[in-house]
Simulated scan of single mutants.
Amino acid sequence: MFTPVHADFFNAPTLELSRNLLGQILVHELPEGVVAGRIVETEAYMGAEDRAAHSFGNRRTKRTEIMFGKPGLVYTYQMHTHTLVNVVAGPEETPRAILIRAVEPVEGIELMRERRGKHMPMKQWTSGPGKLTKAMAINMDYYGHYFTEKPLYIAQGNPVESVSVGPRIGIGNSLDAVHYPYRFWESENPFVSKFR
């Protein structure tokens, strides 16, 4: 039903890949069924020269180690009580990553409803990076997994017609990096996270 993208898909410059991810499908094949969401919002983190990136200044720690790997690897990390999921980007040893910020549910709606709460409106299920991992049961176990391999993969979708570009969200202490236009989203999509 869903076909993982080819490894070559990830071999694009980071900002281009961040835009190209829009419209692709994030798929998680679970024992109880498949959950999938169309990617509608991403944020690029440009590594050594980007103050907002975990790998700013080529910082190499247990957490950031995977960012130095090949593009298309999964970089998960914990923020408060949430797991956030990222696509490693850029050539090896260039520690860049793209945060998947929001998806639009396309498969496994009932499974997502159970995880996010029966009374929550659907457009709040996956409209943020911690929300979508909860809805799709993505956890830290996927750190270092490869996004072309099941059970968690990015599948071919359709390119997005209208893309908006702007500053990233929630990086208030990163000086000039606050203003970099590294966030991409499908214009007018109701599942895009709210900019506060």
Rank of each mutant, 00 (worst) to 15 (best):
H119A: 02
H6K: 04
W185P: 03
I98E: 11
H82I: 07
F147G: 00
I109H: 15
P121K: 04
T133F: 13
V106H: 02
D50V: 04
R113C: 14
L132I: 14
H119Y: 08
H179D: 09
Y75H: 14
K134E: 11
H80E: 12
F147D: 00
V40I: 08
K62G: 13
I66T: 05
V163S: 06
M136D: 11
E92H: 13
I98D: 11
M112I: 08
P151V: 01
E104D: 07
R96S: 08
E32C: 02
G47T: 01
L175D: 13
I109V: 15
R196S: 07
Y142E: 02
G47V: 04
I169Q: 14
P167C: 01
V40S: 05
S174M: 03
A52G: 13
F195Y: 13
S127C: 12
Y182N: 12
N158Q: 13
H82C: 12
M1C: 13
H28A: 05
I98W: 10
A89H: 15
E32T: 03
T148D: 00
D141K: 14
T14Y: 04
K118F: 14
H82W: 15
A97W: 09
Y180Q: 13
A97R: 11
I154R: 01
E32D: 11
T42L: 04
M67F: 03
R116C: 12
G23T: 08
M136I: 10
F10M: 02
K134L: 14
T61R: 01
V163D: 09
T148N: 00
E32G: 06
K123D: 15
R196I: 10
A97Y: 06
Y153R: 05
I100N: 15
P121G: 06
R116S: 09
G117E: 10
V40T: 05
R116W: 10
A97T: 10
I98G: 10
